Amino acid sequence: MRTSRFCQYVYLVAFAALAGPLPAQELPTRTIEQTYTFDDRGDAVVETSSQFSAAEWVEWKERFGDHPDLLLRDLRYQYASAVVDDYSLEKDDVHRHATAKIKARALARYRSNGDFAIDVTKDLKLVTGSGSDWFFTSSAAMNGVLINQTLKAKLPAKATRVAFTPGGDFNLLTYSIDVTPLRSKGSLIVGICLLLLGVGAAIASFFVMQRHTTTVTIIPPPPSAPPPIPNLPKQ
């Protein structure tokens, strides 16, 4: 069975778990806001915040708020296809507000050639989206609470060819990242400096060799003395 990798319901369960269902007309309403911020590797920082009524706050703290280890356990189970770390949970007893944050590595599925895909559950309705910012909403009754969820997916700034495509079991939010390795500006500057140093060293070496060249002058031997004139006979 395929597991959704986007908008897991663990947050909804953790932030909306209350005792016993209520009649539909008496369902309390709560809005949960989620933000998924993706980086170039497909990892995402997921932040979820919720506001509680007084009764809901007491119930939530007993079941999850005072036991963050249980919430982390459920998160790892629900995000089994990703690696969950950097977990934190902040609670504000005065304003009855809670914020959970995790980092889910490889949440966006890498396909090939810089193409990524994010599975979007069917219950999420696209509100608007273009470029790197995409907004979805959903509404569902869960454990006696009507949950109105607002979700924002923030894709990397380098994302291109972004598209939302309805599919079979899941809709798809796809995008591409240029994965061609580029030389950094610093490496380029260092390379140019090394090249210039090499050229300068070669020129300096040439002049040094010229200055230390020994000139050899060949001096021809002195001419040999002429042969003696023989004595002529006397007349």
Rank of each mutant, 00 (worst) to 15 (best):
A16K: 00
S4H: 05
M142N: 06
D66V: 05
G144W: 00
L182P: 00
A140D: 06
G168C: 03
V46N: 01
F170C: 04
A19H: 03
R96Y: 06
V94E: 12
A225W: 08
V190S: 08
F207P: 02
P228A: 07
I189K: 11
D169T: 14
K91W: 07
V199K: 00
V190N: 10
N231G: 11
Q51V: 11
M1I: 13
G191L: 14
D74R: 11
D74E: 14
L173T: 05
E62N: 15
N113E: 15
R41A: 14
E62W: 05
E56R: 01
Q34I: 08
L195E: 04
L194W: 06
K91E: 11
L18M: 12
R183M: 13
V208E: 07
V46T: 08
P23L: 03
Q51H: 11
R105A: 10
L124E: 01
V58P: 00
T217G: 03
D123M: 10
C193A: 15
K101G: 03
F15G: 00
E47N: 09
F135T: 11
Q8G: 15
A157E: 12
L196D: 06
A54V: 10
A104G: 09
P227H: 07
V84G: 06
I102E: 01
A44R: 01
S139K: 12
V162Y: 01
T29R: 09
N148C: 07
L155F: 07
Q210D: 10
Y110T: 11
L146Y: 06
R105Y: 02
T121K: 09
F15K: 01
P228M: 09
N113C: 05
F38M: 03
V10K: 00
L146T: 04
L18Q: 06
R5L: 07
T165L: 08
S184H: 03
S50A: 15
L232Y: 08
R73S: 15
Y110C: 10
L27G: 00
G131R: 03
L155D: 02
Q34F: 00
D93A: 15
K122C: 08
A225S: 12
A153G: 04
F52K: 02
R30N: 02
F116I: 06
I147D: 01
Y77I: 14
P223M: 06
K101M: 13
H212W: 10
K234A: 14
K234V: 14
L195P: 01
S49W: 01
A80R: 11
A44W: 01
K158P: 00
T48H: 03
Y36D: 05
Y110H: 14
V216A: 13
V199L: 12
V179S: 03
V216E: 08
A159D: 02
P233G: 10
A163P: 01
A16I: 01
V45N: 04
C193W: 05
F170M: 07
S176E: 11
A82K: 01
A163I: 09
D40Q: 08
I218N: 09
R2C: 04
D119G: 07
I177C: 02
E56A: 15
T3D: 10
T165N: 04
R73H: 13
A24S: 11
D66Y: 08
T214D: 14
D43E: 08
V199I: 15
G167Y: 03
K125S: 13
D93H: 12
S138G: 07
Y87C: 09
I177Y: 00
V179Q: 08
V208M: 07
T48K: 01
